[in-house]
């Protein structure tokens, strides 16, 4: 039976071709049949994890605790220099210039991306805003979050910083960034499940060496980073504890 690789559904479709190429490389390098399964929602992905259908996952930090504590996953690597950060932005027409001017009842546009949503809501707390006193508009993508702001359908938006940076200049010009997080220690991680855990060291070494040759470098470029960095068990436990403190 082939193994199954999946990536957190918070990636935009244009990232996905990079993951298909990566998976082809991974199969060739490991000599294993690995199927890349893309879920279009966190819910669908969680169901597959619960049913033990996943062997490798580029996981959202929000899911790390569940993967480690309940499903026996262990960390392999993270994308170098890629911490998950959130941006709070409003329309450039908005009179708001500081988060603390936002009022309870305001409309907050978000995506389903759980860690970004969590970090974003923490950055709204100084205005006494919380999930129970704002109107949350869940959008399918960060471009749609931006559009809600431009159309005046939402008062404030929560973005993955990388997605915000990737918006077109035309859109960005019509937005105003209020805060950008600098948390540094929360990041996605590639994790290995129980069926493949025996090969953890081999997998990790293969991934860490990926940027040593041109072919590997090209594949990484398609994933939009330069190298993998090792994530040790202690690093993962630290991040899980951090997420736990934020998730309150």
């Amino acid at each position: 039976m082939p193994y199954t690789l999946t990536v957190s559904p918070d990636f935009t479709p244009d990232h996905l071709s990079g993951w298909y190429i990566f998976n082809t490389w991974l199969q060739k390098t490991t000599g294993e049949a690995i199927h890349l399964e893309i879920f279009n929602s966190f819910l669908a992905q969680h169901e597959a994890i619960q049913d033990d259908e996943i062997d490798l996952i580029f996981a959202n930090p929000f899911d790390a605790a569940m993967l480690v504590r309940e499903k026996g996953f262990l960390p392999l690597v993270m994308a170098q220099g890629r911490s998950d950060e959130a941006v709070i932005a409003v329309s450039s027409d908005s009179p708001i210039i500081d988060v603390t001017e936002l009022l309870p009842g305001c409309r907050v546009a978000v995506t389903e991306d759980p860690d970004v949503r969590l970090m974003g809501m923490i950055m709204l707390e100084p205005a006494d805003l919380a999930t129970d006193n704002v109107q949350t508009h869940v959008c399918d993508s960060y471009v749609l979050v931006a559009k809600q702001l431009l159309r005046g359908d939402a008062d404030v938006g929560i973005f993955l910083a990388e997605a915000y940076d990737g918006l077109s200049n035309i859109i960005k010009k019509q937005l105003k960034m209020l805060v950008r997080s600098q948390i540094d220690v929360i990041h996605h991680a590639l994790m290995v499940g129980p069926r493949l855990v025996d090969r953890r060291d081999e997998l990790r070494n293969t991934l860490l060496a990926m940027n040593n040759d041109e072919k590997g470098q090209d594949i990484l470029k398609n994933l939009r980073f330069d190298a993998w960095n090792s994530v040790e068990d202690a690093d993962m436990e630290f991040m899980i504890d951090l997420m736990d403190t934020l998730n309150t």
């Binding site: 603390t100 923490i122 707390e125 100084p126 205005a127 006494d128 436990e237 504890d241 951090l242 403190t245």
Partner: peptide, 18 residues
């Protein structure tokens, strides 16, 4: 860690003025 408390972590964030 492995069922044993090995220490404590504190994370601080910006508080609301109120």
């Amino acid at each position: 860690r492995n069922g044993v408390v090995v220490g404590y972590t504190s994370v601080r964030r910006k508080p609301s003025r109120s």
